[in-house]
């Protein structure tokens, strides 16, 4: 079936099987492999992107459900040398080790800062419940998000 949407502000049209996931469209068809698929069972949040400005797990949405939507992936928010403030905060606070969960963490954290109101440590931890990290123990991730919340 035909799907048209925007990804990182670029119009995208694709003719896909109906059972194509948004994560497969993003990674397989568009080659935007910054969006990671960790668990593929809707638990880990590594595949988090923004759909019309809100964080969603792209492995748990059909590409067809994104018809007409504006999707933003990690590639759409910053670039080497021109990092998004959330990316810079993760770098400064050592909010990553292996980096696999980081794109999802950053996309979820941006939604949190933009939509959750004033943040404290508890709210950041609750807000990132949908994102799992196997390395850091979350401590520096929380620090990074709180630091970025002041810059954003």
């Amino acid at each position: 079936m035909k799907v048209s949407l925007t990804v990182n502000e670029r119009p995208v049209e694709a003719d896909l099987p109906a059972n194509t996931l948004l994560s497969d469209l993003i990674r397989g068809h568009l080659g935007l492999t910054g969006t990671h698929v960790g668990c593929d069972t809707s638990q880990c949040g590594a595949c988090t992107v923004h759909l019309n400005g809100r964080a969603v797990k792209s492995c748990t949405i059909l590409a067809a459900q994104a018809q007409g939507a504006a999707v933003t992936t990690i590639e759409g928010i910053g670039a080497p040398g021109n990092l998004h403030p959330m990316q810079a905060a993760f770098q400064d606070a050592h909010g990553l080790q292996c980096g696999f969960c980081t794109p999802g963490m950053i996309m979820a954290a941006i939604d949190l800062v933009q939509n959750a109101g004033p943040l404290d440590e508890t709210k950041v931890r609750e807000g990132l419940e949908g994102n799992l990290c196997r390395c850091t123990g979350y401590h520096n991730i929380v620090k990074a998000v709180l630091s970025a919340a002041e810059r954003l």
């Binding site: 949040g45 809100r54 964080a55 969603v56 797990k57 949405i61 939604d111 419940e129 949908g130 994102n131």
Partner: peptide, 9 residues
């Protein structure tokens, strides 16, 4: 309910 991403959908 669930987590942020789940509540958004």
């Amino acid at each position: 309910i669930g987590d942020t991403q789940v509540r958004n959908r």
